[in-house]
Design a protein around this nucleic acid. Structure first.
Lengths: 186, 186
DNA sequence: GAAAACATTTTACAAATGATAAATAATCAG
DNA sequence: CTGATTATTTATCATTTGTAAAATGTTTTC
């Protein structure tokens, strides 16, 4: 499905809003492991996954930490930079070969002024992200690592394409620990 | 400071928007430990703390878990219910004697249609909440319990009024474990 | 296809945290 | 004020997770 059509399922958009938004959307392709946005940069582009999957990651004490995975139709944005205009110590990387829809953030924010419905659309999209993030906190706060792993497995078939080391840090545990959990399960 | 004046520091509001918003804001007082919103209810009111502090909490396996603390000038809202219209297994409780600004959510959403600037104001307020939540994930994902406790201590002086059992579950550890951490620090 | 690079599992031991119960300390209601 | 209730600390032991290093498995590159 076309991206603007998908947006229409969330908020009805006026024809001019549709056109204005359409004009901003480009498609970009990345190979497995490509860096999509560099660590330390400022977010100036919103992405939505068209195909493949990608992750938000950062370095902490010499370890590569995965903070977030995105799969088709999902946003992938370093929100703490997008909303503050400040650089972030996080980056975005393609996990598999990946196609993304890209939207320039400054151009989008200009559209907010002219098109109330576009601002509303992205308000709602980010509200949904916010709710997902709250659920993630529940999970990190009071589920065991094993429970969190099983939850992730259920969430999407794409998990099988993701290297374990990425999954381990996403779950907040070491690779060794995840390996033990997997050994226990079989 | 008056709440609408505070809002103006975030987004300029037209005089009619100011009046419309002002008309929605009421003040409510609660005594320590009062339940502000019941577990299982649907969120129909946004609150902003005027004085005191409050928490969002839920029950998990017979344990009372604190998910969030709010202090003066901060929002306290069960977002997963506000944005979905569905009931939530979370509640809101006053930790100390507390005064809240209250805004009816359905009335607010109606104002969104008439006042682009009001929708923008709350878009930005919730974007800020979203960013805070992302920071919380970083903290839960890769800081030790001791680091998370020290971080919380730094964040606000109000922490001293909060019972340890609430703090422990907020940090994702048991009360006993938090007690040990405190013993280590002195 | 073989060497090199990278990913995952296993092992052994240390440290952190959980569970339970009991001991103290602090707060509240009459 | 005093007993009752609630909150916090301490102790013990079990479990989970971390760290480091080595072994094994898989993928990539030439």
């Amino acid at each position: 499905m076309d991206l603007v059509s998908y947006f229409q399922t969330i908020v009805p958009l006026s024809p001019t809003a549709q056109d204005a938004l359409e004009a901003l959307i480009t498609t970009r392709s990345y190979r497995k492991n490509d860096i999509i946005q560099e660590i330390g940069s400022t977010c100036r582009t919103l992405y939505i996954v068209k195909s493949g999957c990608a992750r938000i990651f950062y370095w902490k004490d010499g370890n590569d930490i995965t903070e977030h995975f995105s799969f088709p139709q999902e946003l992938i944005v370093r929100a703490e930079s997008l909303f503050t205009g400040k650089p972030t110590s996080k980056g975005i990387q393609a996990i598999t070969d990946t196609e993304l829809y890209a939207i320039d953030s400054l151009a989008l924010f200009k559209l907010y002024d002219q098109h109330h419905d576009i601002e509303r659309l992205f308000r709602i999209l980010f509200e949904q992200e916010y709710v997902n993030t709250i659920k993630r906190i529940e999970s990190l706060q009071f589920h065991t690592a094993k429970e969190r792993y099983l939850e992730l497995l259920k969430s999407t078939q794409y998990v099988q394409h993701i290297p374990l080391k990425y999954i381990a840090s996403y779950l907040g545990i070491t690779q060794v620990s995840l390996s033990r959990i997997r050994a226990d399960l079989s």
